[in-house]
Amino acid sequence: MESLGSTRRSFAPWADPKAKPYIQIENLTKRFGDFTAVDDLTLTIYEREFFALLGASGCGKSTLLRMLGGFETPSAGRILLDGQDLRGIPPYKRPVNMMFQSYALFPHMSVEANVGFGLRQEGMPKGQIAERVAQMLKLVKLEQFAGRKPHQLSGGQRQRVALARSLAKRPKVLLLDEPLGALDKKLREETQFELMDLQHELGLTFVVVTHDQEEAMTMADRIAIMEKGNVLQVATPPEIYEAPNSRFVADFVGSINMFEGKLREKGSRGSRIVRADGLALSADAPADAVVGEKVWLAVRPEKMKVSSARPDNAVNTMEGEVWDIAYLGDMTIYYVKLDDGMVVKASTVNSLRRIGEELTWHDRAWVSFAPDAGVVLAR
C-alpha cells in the first residue's frame, strides 16, 4: 500500500478542472426564526477527501454538518452527494453516518453490541453482524474489550467504540462533530494520526467539524474557515497559514502580527507600506489594493527575528522593549513593545541546550523580518 504521506502529497482533485465534486453544497441556508445559522453557503468536497470545517462556536459549522447528515432541514439551497439530491431523504437512508461529540453510546450494552446496533436495526443476519463487528473492533484495536460496557473504558476507548459503530454500516461519507474534544491533549494528538490512517485505509470521505486549528491543520486535506454562517476561505493547510485572504483568517489560524499602514507602492516586485509613524515596510507579496488605501502587512511570529543589537543590513527593522517572555521548552516567545505602543510577537526555536536567555524583561530589543515573510491584506 502506498504510504499516507505520498498519497496526501499527490491528492489534489480540487486542482483538476475535470474532477467532479463528490459533495456539492449549493446556496445552502438554514434559519432558526430570525437567526441565520448558515447563510447562502456554496461548497464542494471531493471523494476520499479529509475535509475540515473550522471556526469558533456559533459560526454554523455543526449546523452545516447536521444538514449533511439529515438531522436538520435546509431553509433554502440543496446538497448533492455523488450527483443525488439529498432533499427529503431521512438520516437512516442516507449513505452517510455521523459520529457525535458525546459519542452517544448505550451504557447498558457491551462494546460489541454498541458497534453492531445499526446493523441489527437494518436487519442484517446475525452471522454477518458478528463478522462485521469483529472487523470494526480489529480496525480500532479494541478486540479484547468486546464484552465491556462503556463505563469500563477510558475516554479514548469510548471514542474508538463510537468510531467503530459509525464505520460499521460502511457509509460513503463519515461526519465527525468535534470527535476529539473529550480527549486529553496527548491522546488527542495520537488519535489525529489514527483517524488519518483509518480514513486512508478505508478510502472514505471524512468531513470533520472542529474549533481546534491544530487539529484541522494536522488532519485535513483542505480546510473551510467559517464565520457567521459563511465560508471565508477554502484551501489546504499550508495555503491557509501562509496565504490567508483576510485579517480574520490570518488571526484565527495561528498567531500573527498585523502592521497597519497606507499602501505607497505596488508592482510586480512587491509592495511598500508606510505606517502612521512614518516607518516604511517592504513586502515581496503583491497587494490587492489601490495605492493610498489602508492595508495590513501580516507576519507570523516565527518569521520575526529578535536581537539585542540592530541587525546589519536588515530591512523592516523596529526597536522596542521586551514586554513579556514565554519559555515553552522547544521555543521562546518574546513580546516586544515598540516605541509607538504596538506589541510584536516573535518566536525563536531553542535549538541549543542552555539555561538563561540573551534577552530578558525590559531590555531594549530589535525586531525585524525579511520582505518575503509577510502577506499584504486589504480586508
Results as ranks from 00 to 15, higher is better:
E215G: 08
K228Q: 15
L232G: 08
P244I: 09
E242H: 12
E239I: 10
A235F: 11
Q213T: 01
M217A: 12
F193T: 10
E189S: 13
D212Y: 08
L195N: 02
T236F: 04
H200M: 03
A216T: 05
L180C: 07
A224Q: 04
T191K: 05
E201G: 01
E189Y: 11
P244T: 11
P238F: 00
A235T: 08
E190D: 15
E215I: 09
V249Q: 06
E189F: 09
L232Y: 02
P237R: 12
P244K: 09
L202F: 06
L195Q: 02
V231E: 09
T218G: 02
D212K: 04
E227A: 14
K185H: 14
M226I: 12
A235S: 13
E190S: 14
R188A: 12
L202H: 06
P237L: 13
N245H: 01
T205N: 03
M226G: 13
R188N: 11
E239G: 04
K228S: 14
K228T: 00
E227Y: 00
E214Y: 09
E194Q: 14
E201L: 09
V231N: 07
F193M: 13
T205D: 05
L232E: 14
M226Y: 06
Q192D: 15
K228I: 01
P179F: 05
E189I: 08
D197P: 00
D184R: 10
T205S: 05
A182E: 01
H200F: 03
T218A: 15
G203M: 12
L180R: 04
R188D: 15
A224G: 01
L183M: 07
A224E: 02
T210V: 08
L183A: 10
G181L: 00
V249F: 00
E201H: 10
V249R: 06
S246K: 03
H200N: 02
G229A: 10
A243C: 11
P237I: 14
A243T: 15
V249N: 06
